[in-house]
Structure formats: C-alpha cells, structure tokens
Amino acid sequence: MNFDYGLVGETGLAFFGKVSTTACHELKNVLAIINENNGLLEDMTFMAQKGRAIEPERLGRICEGIAKQVRRADELLDYISRFAHSVDQFEDEINLEDCCRLVVFLARRLTAAKRLIVEVTTPPEGTARLTRGNPFLVENLLWTALLEAMQFCDNGGTLRLMPGERDGQPMVAFGGLNCLSEDFCPTSPLSALLASAPARWMTYCPEQRCELIFTGGEG
C-alpha cells in the first residue's frame, strides 16, 4: 500500500476533528450524569440531616448509576486511545474486523441519529487482513464509507459491515441498504481516500450491497 497523507489531509483532519468533538460531547454527558447523581446524594444527605429516612435501595440505585457512567467513560477512553494510537505507525498489519468495530463505535452517535443498528460480522479465519496499511487512513476510509452507506439505509434499519475477501483481496461489504441506485457516485472525500488506499468501491444494486475492496492489500 502506498498511502499519501497529502492527498487526504483535509479529509483526515475533518475525521479527527469529528471523532474528537463527538468524544468530548459524550464525556461531558457522562460527567453531567455523575454530577447529578452526586448532587442527589448531597440532597439526600441534607434531607437526612433534617431527620428524613434514607432508603438503602435508593442509595444503591445512585451508586449503580455512577458505576454505569464510569464503565461507559472507560470504554469510550479505550476506543479513543486505540484511535489516537493509530497514527503511531505509518504502516502496520491491519485487521479489518477490528478496524470496523472501532469505526462503528466512534460513529455510534451519528448512526444513532438515524436510529440505525450497526452490526459487524466476524470474517472467516485468516481473511480480511491487510499485511501492510496505514491504520489511520484505513479508519478514515471506513468511516467515510460508513457515512456514505448510511444514506442508503432506512431510519431504524440495520446496517451490516461484513469484512471478508473478494477474489483474494481484503474487503468490507456493506449490507442492509435499501435505496442504492445505479447512478450512485462516491463523494470527493471518499474518492480521494479510495485513490490513496488504493481501494475500489463497488455497488451491487440488485443485492443492495456495496463493497470496499482493498486492491493494494494482501489477504
């Protein structure tokens, strides 16, 4: 693979910015919920000082509410850390299934806006791997492809990302589409990323399916 940061610099920065602001938003929400639970504990302490009884079940519910948000933030930070480390190496071996799961997690606020369920299937063993690729740019490509594929899904539908192989080349198929048409043309950010990968974007209208095939990679 011969990735070129220059070609996709603007798209890459937009991707990085979107992921960062989405994560910041979610972490603010986590803190807001912890803050309100803390406030509720203060309220109950105040009321107890005034002689009102505290129900243990209510305290347990508050503690569980805080613990749930801590788990949520921890999971988010794990994914954000993985994402941030994807620029550590210019080239690395890439597992497309892991990459899909990361991108789907990072995009979940956007997919939630369409009430989409997004599933990633497990590929046959030994497939869906690039022996050499640029992790950040593959993530950017998958992110952009995911956003394009979402346009062809009904609100509340299920979008499936299926890493695998097409004629010995690693690929990710997008299934569960509903209104894919013959005249579909990839947007310019997707086109630039496809050229850099290099990869091809194939559409199969009768099956309502798209495929992102990594032509420079090896399965």
């Binding site: 919920i33 309100e36 639970n37 509720l40 309220d43 509410g65």
Partner: peptide, 15 residues
Amino acid sequence: DETDFLSVMAERMTM
C-alpha cells in the same frame, strides 16, 4: 437524549 441524565435531573427538580 441522555435518559440517565433526565431521570436524575427530574428526581432532583421534583424534590
């Protein structure tokens, strides 16, 4: 859209 936030806020405001 954060339902956990909604429920605790509602409880505190009701108090």
